[in-house]
Each structure stands twice: as C-alpha cells, then as structure tokens.
Simulated scan of single mutants.
Amino acid sequence: MSTRNAIEDLFRRRTRPAGDGHLNWTGYRNKKGTATLHWNGSNHSALRIAYRIRTGSDPIGYAHATCEHPGCVAPKHAADSAVTPRRGHHTGPINRQPNSSDDQVKALLREELSDRQIGKRLRTSPKRVAALRAELGIPSRPVTFEGRWDANTEPADGGHIRWTGRFRAGSNPAIAHEGRDTSPRRIAFERLHGRPAVGRVLPGCGYGPCVRPEHLEDQPMRDQLASQYAAIFGEVAA
C-alpha cells in the first residue's frame, strides 16, 4: 500500500458518518481543536487529507469545511481557501447558547467527574467546566488512568472500544501515564491479566482502533493461538 493510500485509509478509520453526508472526526485534535492525524512522525490536517481524497491534489491555501456541521471532515465538504473563501468564524448568533446548561455541568461536577470527562459527555469546553468548578469551590482531582481512559474512548459496534485520543506512528494509541508516554493497551492488558505484557499488545479482534481489554493480545498469547491453529490444521492434513 502506498503512503498516500495508507494515510487516507487511516483517515477513513478515524471518521464516523453523522447524517446528511457529514463526517465526524473521532481521532486526535490539537490544542486549537483542529482535527489532526499523526502519521510517520508528522501531524496532518484531517481536512487537508479530505480535500486530497476529493480532488487528488493538495490545496493551495488552507483546507476548510464548506458546511455548517461542527467539525465536519467529509471530503465532499472540503474546500481550498485559495479557491473558495472560508466562511466567517462567527456565522451563528453572537450570543448563542452553549451545548449544555450550567446546571448540567454542575451536576456532573458534584458526581466528581473530571473536567475532560464532563466536556466530552456534554460536548462543551473543559475550560468552561473548570470555571464552574472554581465557582463551586470543588477541587480538581488528580487525573487517573481511568479518567484519561474515559475521556479518550467510546463504544463501537461489535462490542469494541474505540480509542479516540492521541496516536503515535499513525496507528498506535498513546497516553501520558505516571510521567511517561505509554500505550493504553499495555496498561489495560496488564490490569486485566495481572501480569506484564510481553512484546507488542495488539487487538486480536481485527478492529484496528480497538482497546477493549478482553480483545487485546500480547506475543505469548499470539504464539499460543498460532500453535493451536497449527495443531488443528496439522491433524486435518494428516
């Protein structure tokens, strides 16, 4: 598979249909909220890749969405700012209401959820949550692995759990834990099986973004499965 085809395939696996031809981005977003895909040590704009899928070439200016669906990365909605001017940053009402009420945010704060967990659940800014936290005088809890896991995963069809957070080398989930950058798959595997993982931890279910602990395998598990297949097919051949 060529580099171009590989990155475009990864783009497709980081999206989810949202109706009316829109595509939601399920992958990593940078600090500005821009949909970003990490590939071969570099960050790529998801909209730039979408434009390339639609036209076969890179935009001259900035890639932007022509629709009003928040965060849409559908290729047919991707345009080049050098050809099609970008819509104004404030096309909606100046005083439009946030996605959730203050009371909804405060209720979840009292349930001791983190700012990011609440932001993800209510589709609002964690900074807004933090401001309401300060207003109520509720101290922030240290961010645990469980908190980061909840903020960066979502259920997927077929019983899988999709990683929506940061990726390394294009397809390897990554998370900051205890002062180091590590694999959430490795941590989830070790917590489920009660032993350190040996070799790479990969989803044995075949679904690339899956991090469901029960679906993860390390090298000894893969070797054991290969031996079982060899024994089964060897007996059939005999």
Score class of each variant (00 low, 15 high):
residue 200 R to A: 12
residue 155 P to H: 13
residue 195 R to L: 00
residue 194 G to I: 11
residue 189 F to L: 07
residue 186 R to L: 03
residue 152 N to E: 12
residue 153 T to W: 15
residue 172 N to V: 00
residue 170 G to F: 02
residue 162 R to Q: 13
residue 178 E to D: 15
residue 173 P to V: 00
residue 172 N to F: 01
residue 187 I to V: 14
residue 152 N to V: 09
residue 183 S to R: 07
residue 198 V to D: 06
residue 184 P to N: 08
residue 170 G to T: 00
residue 164 T to Y: 11
residue 221 M to H: 13
residue 213 P to F: 03
residue 169 A to G: 01
residue 222 R to A: 06
residue 203 P to T: 11
residue 204 G to V: 13
residue 210 C to P: 14
residue 186 R to N: 03
residue 205 C to N: 06
residue 169 A to P: 00
residue 166 R to P: 00
residue 180 R to Q: 09
residue 162 R to T: 08
residue 197 A to F: 06
residue 152 N to R: 12
residue 167 F to D: 01
residue 177 H to A: 02
residue 216 L to H: 10
residue 192 L to Q: 13
residue 181 D to A: 07
residue 162 R to V: 05
residue 171 S to N: 12
residue 194 G to A: 08
residue 223 D to Y: 07
residue 151 A to D: 15
residue 170 G to C: 02
residue 158 G to F: 03
residue 164 T to H: 10
residue 224 Q to H: 09
residue 213 P to I: 03
residue 158 G to S: 01
residue 200 R to I: 00
residue 159 G to Y: 08
residue 166 R to Y: 13
residue 181 D to C: 05
residue 175 I to K: 00
residue 151 A to N: 11
residue 183 S to I: 00
residue 177 H to L: 13
residue 220 P to I: 07
residue 227 S to F: 03
residue 214 E to R: 10
residue 157 D to I: 06
residue 197 A to I: 04
residue 221 M to Y: 03
residue 223 D to G: 01
residue 200 R to F: 04
residue 188 A to G: 15
residue 216 L to V: 14
residue 211 V to D: 13
residue 190 E to Y: 07
residue 198 V to I: 15
residue 227 S to A: 12
residue 164 T to S: 15
residue 189 F to I: 07
residue 208 G to K: 14
residue 166 R to V: 02
residue 151 A to G: 11
